[in-house]
């Protein structure tokens, strides 16, 4: 094979490769910037009764949907400002209250967070963190397909009289704008994230 042909056979693929890799594909894929926007919404949440006694555990159910596009992760957080410590085990301190997950259909196992645990804040997806001020449970599915809903039912033992609060929020990650979280306005918790409040009076 003579030299010019050989040179051509080697140089042409290389030129094609470098031009595609360094110029064409970066420009092409950047122009296709349909970021996958999840749109989380909590369609149902609440206690099964309007009031309860401290002796009987409560039942709290929640259902969340992704009304946007398939997203990497969508978290549904349920937190309990009236409780403290590790709420995952009843036997640790029955007098202080506990929470059990009676059932759920999220793709991942729920994550119990205790006071003092490191948690994300300001919808950063864990990039910015803070210490948890009260216990919570995070339900999540990865990925969370579009138009798909997941639900969970909790058994809550408040073990104290008075107003008992459950705070609920949902976040879609990666987080782009206010449509990536639910609720989009209202009360902010210690994580500087909006929450929906569900109260019940314990006698």
């Amino acid at each position: 094979m003579n030299l010019p042909v050989l040179t051509l056979l080697i140089v042409v693929p290389l030129l094609l490769y470098f031009s595609m890799v360094w110029y064409f594909f970066p420009a092409f894929y950047s122009s296709q910037s349909d970021r996958s926007l999840g749109l989380p919404i909590i369609t149902q949440a609440g206690f099964d009764v309007s009031s309860a006694s401290s002796d009987n555990p409560l039942s709290f159910s929640i259902t969340a949907f992704n009304q946007g596009q398939t997203t990497d992760i969508q978290i549904v957080s349920v937190s309990f400002p009236n409780l403290s410590g590790d709420i995952s085990k009843e036997e640790i301190d029955p007098a202080r209250g506990y929470v059990k997950v009676k059932d759920h259909n999220f793709t991942q196992s729920p994550l119990f967070l205790a006071s003092g645990d490191t948690v994300g804040k300001e919808y950063s997806g864990g990039a910015d963190t803070t210490a948890a001020k009260y216990p919570s449970i995070e339900f999540f599915s990865r990925p969370w397909k579009a138009k798909v809903g997941y639900s969970a039912t909790l058994e809550i033992s408040a073990n104290s009289d008075g107003r008992f609060l459950v705070l609920v929020k949902a976040i879609s990650l990666p987080h782009f704008d206010k449509s990536s979280h639910y609720p989009q306005k209202g009360f902010k918790d210690y994580q500087q994230e909006f929450v929906a409040i569900y109260p019940i009076f314990i006698k």
């Binding site: 970066p26 894929y29 950047s30 910037s33 970021r35 992760i73 997806g125 990039a127 990925p143 990666p174």
Partner: peptide, 14 residues
């Protein structure tokens, strides 16, 4: 920014 699976390509080409 965090490399989420849906953003891997965009971050790489950027």
């Amino acid at each position: 920014e965090p490399v989420w699976p849906s953003l891997t390509g965009l971050i790489y080409f950027d």
